[in-house]
Design a protein around this nucleic acid. Structure first.
Lengths: 239, 239
DNA sequence: GTAAAATTAGACACTATTGTCTAACTCGTC
DNA sequence: GACGAGTTAGACAATAGTGTCTAATTTTAC
C-alpha cells in the first residue's frame, strides 16, 4: 500500500463542472486522476475499482456514486484527458514561430515545446497507450478526439508552415505533408523511448529537436540557406 | 462461437521445436497463434484461457499441459512473435539497394517492403500493442528483442546508408541518425493508422514511401540530384 | 492391433472483481 | 447544535477467471 507518490499533473485547463460543490468537485478530480493513472498502468480490464479508490484516497462507493459503473468512469477519464491534451496541443501550436529570422533556432524551440508539453507528458503517454489498446473496442469514443486533435494538427501546423513558405523562409509544395514529416522527424529519436513507457531527458529532447529541424530545413529551406551549420544556442521556455 | 476466420499468418521461419511429435507441434502452433491474436486483442489481463482454447480449437487442459500457466504462455507467445519479427526484419534489411542508380525508385521499393513485411503485418501490430501495454511490467522480457531488433535496426540500416554515402550516392554525416529519420519519414503518414489498429492500403503504403524518400533525398542527396522530380514508376516485389 | 502418449470435457475449489445495499460517519451551513 | 448532502467501511450476491483433477477418448508409434 504505497502512498500515492505522484498524481497526474493537472493543468489549469480543467473546466468547473457546473454547480457542484467544491468538495464534491475535488473528489471527482482525484478520482479522474487516479483512474487515469491506473487505467494507463493496467489497461481497462486490468484496472480494478478498488485500486483506483485507494489511489484516489476515496471509498469505492464514492466512485460508484459519481460514475455508475467502470465503463462510465473509463469514458469520463478518456474524455477528460483528451480535452486537456487537445487544449494543450493547440495552445502549444499557437507558439509556432512566424518570423523568418532565426528560423532554425525558433523551430527547434518550438519542437521542444511540442514534445515536452504534448507528447512526453503523462497525458501523452496515457493516450498513446489507451488509444492503442482500447481504440478498436471504443471506436466512437476516440473518433472525436482523432478529428479534433491528431487530424487537425497536420492541417493547422501545415497552415503555419504555409505562412512561412509564402514569406520565402521555406520552400514547400505540400504543407500538410511537411507538417506530418516535421512531427515524424521530431519523434524519430524518441519513438523507442515512448514505446517502453520512458520519458526522454531534457538533453535527449534537445538533441532530437535539433536533429529534426536540421534535416527538415535541409529538405525544405530555400537553396542558399541549406547549410546553416552551427547548432545555434537554444533557449527553451517550458511552461 | 465464430469459426476462427483468420489466424496470424505464420511465415516459414518457424523452427521445428526439436524431437517433439508432429501432432503435438501443430497443437503448440495453433495455441501460440490463437494466444497471439487474443492477447493482441484483449491485452494480458483481458485475455482468458478459455477464449484462447476456443480460438485454437483445443481444450483448455491442453493449454495447461503445454504451458504451465497463463504467464508462461504469454512469455512463449511474446518470444515467438519477436523471433519471427526480427527474422523478417533482417531478411528485409538484406534487400536494401546497394547500387546508386535508380536510387529513388529502389529506396521507395525498399520502404514499401519494410512497411509491408515488418510494420503493417500482424506481428508488427502485436508488438506495438503488447510492448506498449506490458513493456513496463516485463522489462527483461522485451529487453532482448529491443537490443536485437529496434536498436540494431538503426545501426544496420545506418551502415547500409553509409555504403551508399561512400559511393557518393548520398551525402550523410550521421548515418545512424539518417537511418532513424528514414524510418520516421516512412511512417509519418501511417502513424495515425497504426495507432487505431488499422492496416494501410497498398496505395497508402505507396504514397507514404514515395513521400518519405522524396523528402529524405532532398535532405541527403548530393546537390545537383536534388530535384529528381518525376515519381518514377515503382515495381514492388512483396514476398 | 496394441500400448503409450496426448487430448478432451467436465467438475471442482479458489480467488478476484463488479456492483448493490446499509448503517454509521463527517463536515459545512444555517 | 441540528440538518443534510456527501462520504465511508463493510457485508453481500453474482459472476468470471485460474489452475487442478479425473476419467474417458482419440491419436500416434511400433
Amino acid at each position: 500500500m504505497k502512498n500515492r507518490t505522484m498524481a497526474v499533473s493537472r493543468s489549469s485547463t480543467r473546466k468547473d463542472t457546473g454547480p457542484t460543490q467544491r468538495g464534491q468537485c475535488s473528489k471527482r478530480i482525484s478520482i479522474l486522476d487516479a483512474a487515469a493513472n491506473v487505467f494507463c498502468r493496467e489497461g481497462f480490464s486490468g484496472a480494478s475499482i478498488d485500486e483506483i479508490a485507494i489511489e484516489a484516497c476515496v471509498s469505492r462507493q464514492t466512485i460508484y456514486n459519481h460514475y455508475r459503473e467502470k465503463e462510465t468512469l473509463f469514458v469520463a477519464v478518456i474524455e477528460d484527458v483528451m480535452e486537456r491534451a487537445n487544449a494543450m496541443l493547440f495552445s502549444t501550436l499557437s507558439t509556432f514561430p512566424d518570423k523568418p529570422d532565426h528560423l532554425q533556432r525558433d523551430l527547434t524551440d518550438f519542437a521542444i515545446r511540442l514534445t515536452t508539453n504534448c507528447i512526453c507528458n503523462q497525458d501523452g503517454k496515457f493516450l498513446r497507450r489507451l488509444v492503442q489498446s482500447e481504440g478498436e473496442r471504443y471506436p466512437h469514443l476516440f473518433e472525436g478526439w482523432r478529428q479534433q486533435g491528431p487530424c487537425k494538427i497536420s492541417t493547422t501546423l501545415g497552415a503555419l508552415f504555409a505562412k512561412l513558405s509564402h514569406k520565402g523562409a521555406l520552400r514547400i509544395d505540400d504543407c500538410d505533408l511537411a507538417a506530418r514529416q516535421f512531427l515524424a522527424l521530431v519523434n524519430a529519436d524518441l519513438q523507442m523511448i515512448y514505446l517502453f513507457g520512458g520519458k526522454p531527458t531534457e538533453e535527449e529532447l534537445q538533441t532530437a529537436a535539433s536533429n529534426a529541424v536540421e534535416t527538415f530545413l535541409r529538405a525544405y529551406a530555400p537553396h542558399q540557406q541549406q547549410n546553416a551549420a552551427q547548432p545555434a544556442p537554444v533557449l527553451v521556455a517550458v511552461s
